[in-house]
C-alpha cells in the first residue's frame, strides 16, 4: 500500500515525526498564548455580565426591597443564583471562545485554511477547538464563582460536593465548547446577531439560571419545554455541586449532559470538516 511507504528523500532532522500529538499540543499552545495576550479583554468580557447580574438581583433588588420572594427569599435566591451564574458563564464562554473566532476564521479571514494544513487529521483540529474552549470555560467559571459568592447582600449558603463539582464542571465545559463548535460552524458573520438574539438569549432566560427546575412544576408545560435546553442541566448540576438547594437528580443530569456533548461534538466536528474540505 502506497500510503505506508517511507519517503526516502532526506527530511530535515529537526522535524520530528511524532506528528499528530505534537501538532495537537502546539495548536493548544497557540490558543493559550492568544488567550494570555488577550487577558485584558477576556477578564472584563467574562466578569461584567455575571457581576451585573449578581449585583442587581442579589444586592440592588434586596436593598430596594424588590427581591424575589421578599426579604426572606433573598437568601434562598442568592444561593439559587450562584449555580446559575457559574453555569451561564461557562455556556457564554463556550460560545464566545469557540464559536465567534470560528465564524471569523471561516468567514472573511480564511485563517482556518492554514490551521487545517497542520499535520493532523482535520477532525483533530476541531477536537482541539473543543479542548481549548473547555479550558477557557473552566477559567471563566473560576473567575465568576467568587463574585457570585461574595457580592450578594445576603449570605450564600455553599455546600460543596467536590467529586460532583469537579466532574460536572469538566462536563459542563466540554458540553459548552462543543455547542460553541457546532454554532461556530453553522453560523456566518452575517447571521451571528441571530446566534445571540435567537439562541443565546432564550437559552439563558429559560435555562433555570434564576429559578430551579423543580420550582417550574407550577407551569408544567414550561417545565417540559426547558428540558431541551442544555443550560438547565448545567445549572441544576452546579446547584447539586455547590449548594444545599433543591436540584434535578444527578442520575438525570450526567447522562443528559454527556448526550448533549456527544451530539453537539459530533455534529460540530462533521460540520467543521464539511466547511474546510470541499
Amino acid at each position: 500500500m502506497t500510503a505506508t511507504t517511507t519517503p526516502s528523500y532526506p527530511t530535515m532532522p529537526q522535524v520530528q515525526r511524532s506528528g499528530s500529538v505534537a501538532a495537537f499540543r502546539a495548536l493548544l499552545l497557540r490558543d493559550v498564548t492568544v488567550l494570555r495576550k488577550n487577558l485584558a479583554e477576556f477578564i472584563p468580557r467574562t466578569l461584567l455580565q455575571p457581576l451585573l447580574l449578581v449585583f442587581v438581583f442579589t444586592y440592588v433588588l434586596p436593598k430596594i426591597q424588590l427581591a424575589p420572594g421578599g426579604e426572606a427569599g433573598a437568601e434562598t435566591f442568592s444561593t439559587l443564583l450562584i449555580a446559575g451564574v457559574v453555569g451561564t458563564a461557562i455556556l457564554f464562554q463556550g460560545i464566545q471562545s469557540v464559536a465567534l473566532p470560528l465564524v471569523q476564521e471561516f468567514g472573511f479571514t480564511r485563517e482556518i485554511e492554514d490551521r487545517v494544513l497542520a499535520p493532523l487529521r482535520v477532525e483533530l483540529v476541531a477536537v482541539e477547538k473543543i479542548v481549548s474552549g473547555a479550558l477557557q470555560c473552566l477559567l471563566s467559571a473560576a473567575l465568576v464563582f467568587p463574585i457570585a459568592a461574595v457580592v450578594p447582600v445576603t449570605p450564600v449558603h455553599l455546600r460543596v460536593d467536590w467529586p460532583v463539582l469537579i466532574t460536572l464542571a469538566l462536563l459542563a465545559c466540554v458540553a459548552s465548547a462543543s455547542l460553541g463548535l457546532f454554532f461556530g460552524t453553522v453560523f456566518e458573520p452575517r447571521t451571528v446577531p441571530m446566534l445571540f438574539g435567537v439562541i443565546v438569549v432564550p437559552i439563558t432566560f429559560l435555562g433555570c439560571v434564576y429559578y430551579s427546575w423543580k420550582s417550574l412544576a407550577v407551569i408544567p408545560w414550561l417545565q417540559v419545554v426547558v428540558l431541551a435546553n442544555p443550560l438547565v442541566y448545567i445549572c441544576e448540576g452546579f446547584r447539586a455541586a455547590l449548594t444545599p438547594a433543591e436540584h434535578m437528580p444527578l442520575w438525570v443530569i450526567y447522562p443528559v449532559l454527556v448526550g448533549f456533548t456527544g451530539v453537539f461534538a459530533s455534529l460540530g466536528i462533521r460540520s467543521f470538516k464539511r466547511r474546510v474540505i470541499a
Partner: peptide, 19 residues
C-alpha cells in the same frame, strides 16, 4: 496527517494568524 507534513502551501488569500 503524514502527507501534510510534506506539504507547504501559500494560498491565494492571506491566511496569516491575525491573533
Amino acid at each position: 496527517a503524514r502527507a501534510k507534513q510534506l506539504i507547504g502551501v501559500v494560498p491565494q488569500t492571506n491566511t496569516l494568524d491575525r491573533a
